[in-house]
C-alpha cells in the first residue's frame, strides 16, 4: 500500500470533472420534476447531446459551439416528450423510457462516422493570480468553463426556485396544477418550458462526457449516468445544493476508489466498486431526514377540462 502515490490536488481536480456531467443532468431534471413532470428520458437526451455536441465541435472546431448545439439537441429531443405528455396526454413513465431508447438508437445512427475522431480540446480558463496559488489554484481555478457553468447554474436554480416569483409559480404548478390553473397560470406552457430546460441541461451534460471527460465518441458512452442523475434528484430531496453535494460525492468516491485500487489499498475491490453508490445514498438519506417530499403533482398529467 502506498498512499503517497495519490496526489490529492490532482484527485480533487479530477473528481470535479467526473461529477460535472452528472450535476448538469441532475439539476436540469430537478427543475422538470419541480414543475411536476417526471422525465425518465435523461439518458437518451444526454447521449443525443453527446453526439450532437461532438459532431458540431469536430466540424466547426469550436467546443463551445458544440455545447450550445448539444443543449439545443437535448431540448429538441425533449420537445418530443413534451408533445407526447403535455398535449397527447401520454403516460410520462412510458414516454420517458421510450425517449431513452429512441435517444440511444438515434445517437448511434448519428455517430456512425465519428468513431475514433479526436475532438478539438476545450481550453482551461486561466485566472490571473488565482490559478497560480499553490494547492487551491490547481484545484479550483484551472478548469474548463463548463465546469464553472455547472456550479453557477446550480446556484442560479436554487436562487430562482427559492426567491423569485418565477420559481414560486414553477413550484405551484408542480405541487397542485389545478390550483395553479385556477389562479390563471399557464400550466402546460410552464411545464413545456421546464421540460425544454431539462433537456438542454441533459444535452450539455452528455456533451461534457464526449468533449471533455473522455474525450471521444463511442456508442452508448453515457453508460447509465442519466439514470444515476434521476436517482440523485430523488435522494437529494429536490434541493439544488444537495444535488451538487450528491454529484460531487458520487464523482468523488468514483475517482477515489480507482485511486485507492491503483495505490494497492487492502480493501476488497468489490467494496470499493460499490462505494460510490452506497456512500452517496447513505449521506443523502441522512440529510433528507427532514421529511421534504416530492412535488405533489409529480408524474400526473394536466388537462384543463378535468
Amino acid at each position: 500500500m502506498d498512499l503517497s502515490a495519490i496526489n490529492p490536488v490532482l484527485l480533487i481536480a479530477s473528481l470535479m470533472v467526473a461529477a460535472t456531467p452528472l450535476l448538469l443532468a441532475a439539476v436540469g431534471e430537478l427543475v422538470v420534476e419541480k414543475a411536476g413532470v417526471l422525465n425518465l428520458g435523461v439518458e437518451g437526451m444526454m447521449i443525443v447531446g453527446a453526439i450532437a455536441g461532438f459532431a458540431t465541435a469536430v466540424e466547426s472546431g469550436s467546443p463551445l459551439l458544440g455545447f450550445v448545439v448539444a443543449a439545443i439537441a437535448g431540448a429538441a429531443l425533449s420537445t418530443l416528450f413534451a408533445i407526447l405528455t403535455q398535449f397527447a396526454q401520454a403516460n410520462q413513465v412510458a414516454s420517458g423510457l421510450s425517449l431513452t431508447l429512441f435517444g440511444l438508437g438515434l445517437s448511434a445512427l448519428m455517430g456512425q462516422s465519428y468513431v475514433g475522431i479526436k475532438p478539438p480540446q476545450m481550453q482551461d480558463i486561466h485566472f490571473p493570480l488565482l490559478s497560480d496559488l499553490p494547492v487551491v489554484g490547481p484545484i479550483l481555478f484551472t478548469h474548463d468553463i463548463i465546469l464553472y457553468f455547472g456550479i453557477a447554474l446550480t446556484a442560479a436554480i436554487w436562487a430562482v426556485l427559492k426567491y423569485s416569483r418565477v420559481g414560486l409559480i414553477l413550484r405551484a404548478v408542480g405541487e397542485n396544477h389545478d390550483a395553479a390553473h385556477a389562479l390563471g397560470y399557464k400550466v402546460l406552457r410552464i411545464r413545456v418550458l421546464a421540460i425544454l430546460f431539462g433537456g438542454a441541461c441533459a444535452g450539455m451534460g452528455g456533451a461534457y462526457i464526449s468533449l471533455i471527460r473522455v474525450p471521444q465518441w463511442t456508442e452508448g458512452m453515457t453508460a447509465g449516468i442519466g439514470w444515476i442523475a434521476l436517482a440523485l434528484v430523488v435522494f437529494a430531496s429536490w434541493k439544488p445544493w444537495r444535488v451538487l453535494l450528491g454529484a460531487y460525492l458520487f464523482g468523488g468516491v468514483t475517482v477515489v476508489q480507482l485511486n485507492l485500487q491503483a495505490a494497492g489499498v487492502a480493501i476488497p475491490v468489490e467494496y470499493l466498486a460499490m462505494s460510490p453508490y452506497l456512500i452517496t445514498i447513505v449521506v443523502l438519506v441522512i440529510l433528507s431526514a427532514d421529511k421534504s417530499s416530492a412535488p405533489a403533482a409529480l408524474g400526473r398529467n394536466f388537462h384543463a377540462s378535468r
Binding site: I209, R213, V214, G220, G224, T254
Partner: peptide, 8 residues
C-alpha cells in the same frame, strides 16, 4: 464497456 469509467 463504460467509456467514462475507463477514461477515469
Amino acid at each position: 464497456f463504460d467509456p467514462a469509467k475507463e477514461a477515469d
